[in-house]
């Protein structure tokens, strides 16, 4: 529709200005950091300057370490978050749609939620050894819970009239699940995913620190242990950048194309103000 064109252009321009402002914030941080490191005159081991960190970054890129670590971490992260989301949504549907299952298992869910991931890690290492199984199990654990809780709340607050409308149109139980309940809880899935995928970084870093010999978490702890603080900082910055990319390149466009288009949530801009 041609009517929409000027509006879209305006939105792109707005986003451009917003991005410029965001980049300015990051630039200010780096300049202040460089000045702070130069003026204070402390050792690079204690407080590496942006220049040191950049050199460490180039060094690791040159040697090919960083690429391997990044790909290892990304693989673990993506698989862990994906499996954790499936587990979280699946358990939430089972508990939210079946009173008998909820009566038996709901207390157990609360019990396990309270036991944090760093407490599980030693046990997982004993059970699964050092490696991918331990890391993925930990990530699934970390990601599943916030999604589970949010989706459960989403099921409980989904207007029953939607389900009744579908039943009166002749829907089977499976059709109600697919056409009504799953799209109806999508805002809750997104909220839970935002939290769970954020938590997954914590899980990944601690799991890689203990149960891996590669990856960004390994880099952060290994750098510090070997007095290569600049490498540790590279790992930290990559974590931050990764989240920004996930948020801006995947989460936001997904929200815009679904729950925002359907009028189920206020816009991301409005939410930021709140």
């Amino acid at each position: 529709m041609p009517v929409n064109k000027p509006f879209l252009h305006g939105q792109f321009a707005k986003r451009g200005i917003k991005a410029a402002k965001g980049i300015t914030g990051i630039a200010v941080l780096f300049i202040a950091w460089q000045i702070g490191a130069s003026v204070s005159g402390v050792s690079s081991y204690f407080f590496p300057a942006p220049v040191d960190v950049y050199n460490a970054f180039r060094d690791m890129m040159h040697k090919g370490i960083l690429e391997v670590y990044l790909l290892d971490s990304l693989y673990r992260y993506v698989v862990g978050v994906f499996l954790g989301s499936l587990v979280g949504i699946g358990v939430a549907l089972a508990l939210g749609l079946n009173k008998a299952i909820a009566a038996v298992f709901a207390p157990l869910v609360g019990f396990f939620y309270a036991i944090v991931e760093s407490a599980w890690l030693p046990v997982f290492v004993i059970w699964f050894g050092y490696g991918i199984t331990t890391i993925l199990t930990l990530l699934i654990f970390v990601v599943a819970f916030p999604i589970l809780y949010n989706v459960l709340a989403g099921i409980q607050t989904l207007p029953i009239v939607y389900v009744n409308a579908a039943r009166s149109l002749g829907a089977t139980r499976w059709q109600i699940l697919r056409e009504v309940i799953l799209p109806g809880v999508l805002p809750s899935i997104v909220t839970g995913f935002r939290i769970g995928a954020g938590f997954a970084f914590r899980g990944l870093i601690i799991a890689e620190a203990i149960a891996a010999t590669s990856g960004i978490g390994f880099l952060i702890f290994d750098g510090a242990a070997n007095k290569q603080t600049d490498r540790t900082i590279v790992g930290m910055i990559i974590m931050g950048l990764l989240w920004l990319i996930i948020e801006l390149a995947y989460l936001r466009p997904f929200e815009r194309a679904t729950i925002q288009k359907w009028g189920l949530v206020t816009t991301a801009e409005q939410r930021e103000v709140q």
Partner: peptide, 10 residues
């Protein structure tokens, strides 16, 4: 036909 329409928002 419900009072609050019950159209699926998605």
């Amino acid at each position: 036909v419900f009072q609050d329409y019950a159209l699926l928002p998605w």
